[in-house]
């Protein structure tokens, strides 16, 4: 069974981060939200593994239900 990979996998994290921020350049907040939503759907389909996606959803949610957490 595949598991969510959380070890560093990007060859150049700085390149990705810059590209992510640049993709949002000049967009309103509403447009940015839409870009994020589209991006999530595209990447989810690319991953194509429900087990990995469930783990990613849980990892992203972690701590958000606890108001004291950062």
């Amino acid at each position: 069974m595949n598991a969510l990979q959380t070890i560093a996998r990007l060859e150049s994290p700085d390149d990705f981060y810059e590209a992510l921020i640049e993709a949002h350049g000049g967009l309103t907040d509403a447009q940015s939200e839409m870009l994020n939503a589209r991006l999530i759907l595209l990447l989810a389909n690319h991953i194509g593994d429900m087990q990995v996606l469930r783990e990613a959803l849980a990892a992203a949610r972690e701590g958000l239900d606890d108001p004291a957490a950062p």
Partner: peptide, 19 residues
């Protein structure tokens, strides 16, 4: 938002039609 994102992608990308 996700509903609209799926609809917008569905025109160009077959995978989104399944959503």
């Amino acid at each position: 938002l996700f509903r609209d994102a799926a609809l917008q992608l569905a025109g160009r990308h077959a995978f989104a039609r399944g959503l």
